[in-house]
Design a protein around this nucleic acid. Structure first.
Lengths: 213, 213
DNA sequence: TAGATTGTTAATCGATTAACAATC
DNA sequence: TAGATTGTTAATCGATTAACAATC
């Protein structure tokens, strides 16, 4: 099976969420590409192509088996495997991620939180005791942690990333607004929340300009 | 000037951040498209095109004036205008956004927070007193709020959105994992953080599969 | 069977990159 | 002037959509 691209993966996630959580899906045995596409504002052909890419075959006149779809997506995206992650940077955002229970639906478990701030270390964040940064490397090594969630200030993000990589992490979910330099075998997913502001701010500014003249 | 697309706006945001915050930019009078492109891993032609789209003209052999670039981006994206927003849903994520001070750099000021949970209403979140949801509509009306940041659970997101629209909001920054149905003149930006997990989880699952067989 | 839905190939669309003359 | 950098047109690349025979 060819390596799936980012856009495909994100759509698979959306299909999965639709199928497992939308009320009209409750109890349904089958689902058509048109149903999913309509709900998610996607082209039905796209849905069938994505399903085809992960080996899902539909049935003419009926659609796809709900169970098969769920199972296939879970398997491909790895939701059945327990995935343990550490959070580095126990500020507001880090705390929000630790507290977000829905991640466990996808197999993700945040098992430790770290912060360099001595006032934060020792405090509790969403059920986790925040540890000082010097405990990071040994923890990652001992527990064979593969994923780190980075929510530090941008100034220290690269330094932390270097330590994480040295400790053996192979994926970083980066919420700091900086590009990270890492070896090619380490995967970085950048989550730049502030980028959304560009679209919103522009839209509102345009609106104001149109109103004026 | 033609309406700018989402990808262009996001790149403009990244150019802006690079220019105002990266150390090697300190004191520089000019910057070339190659410099920016190199730092952000973008094609230099793209940078020049984007600059051209907002009316920026470079100088042969020299590049672009740092000041001009900043000013132009700020003006186009509307960062010079004060933009007031309310947060609805004062949970961990809502709190994190309220506490995020860097937004003011872009003209965004979160001026009020609301939550339907009676235990949360009355508490402080990042300097703001959380108000009960019944205060939402009057507040938005009175202060002519145009932007709402939605961080409620997905189940109530649509209902809240309806109220916000009725109260006069024209843009919604939606962090709830649901598609919202709103009138066409209202802009919705979806920030689906969990989508990133699909890419990470897949990558790590693939890695494990490769190792096994 | 008739008809809705699939899987797949071809056509379209848009975004990115390459090429290069014009410029300072 | 020589050479680095721009602005713009053309070529490429990839993703999305349309068309339609095959299927149950």
């Amino acid at each position: 099976m060819a390596r799936l691209k980012r856009l495909v993966l994100e759509r698979l996630m959306r299909y999965y969420r639709y199928i497992v959580s939308v009320p009209e899906m409750r109890g349904a045995k089958t689902v058509t590409s048109a149903q999913i596409a309509g709900a998610l504002d996607i082209d039905p052909t796209q849905v069938r192509k994505d399903f085809g890419a992960i080996g899902l075959l539909g049935m003419g006149r009926v659609g796809f088996g709900v169970c098969e779809v769920c199972t296939a997506i879970r398997r491909v995206l790895g939701f059945d495997e327990r995935l343990e992650a550490v959070v580095v940077g126990a500020g507001h955002l880090g705390g929000a991620l630790v507290a977000y229970e829905r991640f466990t639906q996808y197999g993700l478990h945040i098992v430790a939180a770290f912060d360099s701030d001595k006032r934060k270390a020792g405090r509790r964040v969403g059920g986790l005791l925040v540890q000082p940064t010097r405990a990071l490397t040994p923890y990652v090594r001992r527990h064979k942690i593969r994923l780190a969630i980075l929510t530090t200030p941008p100034e220290v993000a690269q330094k932390v990333a270097d330590r994480l990589v040295a400790a053996g992490v192979t994926a970083i979910w980066n919420f700091a607004p900086t590009r990270l330099t890492v070896p090619s075998e380490v995967m970085v997913r950048n989550e730049q929340i502030a980028l959304g502001l560009s679209e919103i701010s522009y839209h509102l500014a345009e609106q104001a300009r149109e109103k004026q003249g």
